[in-house]
Amino acid sequence: MKFDPALQPATLLRRYKRFLADIQLPDGTERTIHCANTGAMTGCATPGDTVWYSTSDNAKRKYPNSWELTETHSGHMICVNTAQANRLVVEAIEAGVIEELQGYPTLRTEVPYGEEKSRIDILLQSPSKEDCYIEVKSATLLGEGSQGYFPDTVTTRGQKHLRELATLAQQGKRAVLLFAVLHSGIEKVSPAKHIDEVYNQLLIEAELLGVEVLCYQASLSSAQMSIKNRVPFSQY
């Protein structure tokens, strides 16, 4: 995924009201931009960090600029636009990067499914295989060393998705939870049971029922992003 037009840098002043952030441009001008991330963004939104933002050509948008990446003082790159995770995973599947998800000629996104009226992020289909349901989550919470976690806040939506995936697995269908690691400092992922114990327990139960867990790290820069390699997942 290449950024076109190119992302522009600014300094983060503050994030507020969940969807907004104030930045300072290199010329000293202040501007309000949109933030497409409803999470806590722990470690991803420190005032003084560099924000890389995109610009939309949609004249109807109140805030034409969107916060895409954070470059921290320690040099880490983080994709904070959670909508990009699904796009990156789709690209990686189609490019053959995610070996575990190959052999499906049909790929669909945002397909309604489940008893709780959800939409699966990616549905892979093949005449010779059982359908493969993939829920994508963006992992950006860095702990000690290179240890990453998900979620960064209590997520009732994420809990629902785990219940849906577990039900699919019980029905004999292929269900996959895929963590897209969008923080350059994260080299392994675990559930954040210190933040959301319910999510942690549901994930344990889902794995026991046959839900597959995959973690793939992304290469991140202000010019482009792509999924590159698998990293370990473990109950921490």
Rank of each mutant, 00 (worst) to 15 (best):
G143S: 12
K193N: 12
S126P: 09
P127S: 05
R14S: 15
R31C: 02
I204N: 08
A59E: 13
A85Q: 10
G39L: 06
L202Y: 15
E94P: 00
Y16L: 01
V89Y: 03
F19K: 11
S54A: 15
P9S: 11
L141V: 02
G75L: 08
G39W: 08
P9A: 04
S219Q: 14
G48Q: 02
S146Y: 04
A59G: 02
M1N: 08
G75F: 06
P191R: 07
V181N: 14
Y53D: 12
T167D: 11
D57Y: 04
G114A: 11
L209P: 00
V51W: 02
L25Y: 12
T50K: 01
K62W: 10
N58P: 09
Q201E: 15
I23L: 05
Q84R: 11
Q159A: 13
C35G: 04
Q171I: 03
A92V: 10
L177C: 05
T32P: 00
I98T: 05
A139W: 11
H183T: 09
G143M: 06
T82F: 01
V97Y: 09
C79W: 08
L220R: 05
H183G: 04
G158M: 10
Y113H: 14
F233H: 10
V89H: 00
K160G: 14
E99A: 15
A175G: 11
D131G: 05
G75K: 00
G148V: 07
E99M: 14
A36H: 09
K129T: 01
P5L: 13
G185T: 11
C79P: 13
L202S: 01
L214M: 04
A206L: 06
N86T: 13
I98W: 01
Q84Y: 07
K173A: 03
A218M: 10
T155M: 04
H161N: 13
D121Q: 04
I134M: 05
S222M: 01
Q201H: 13
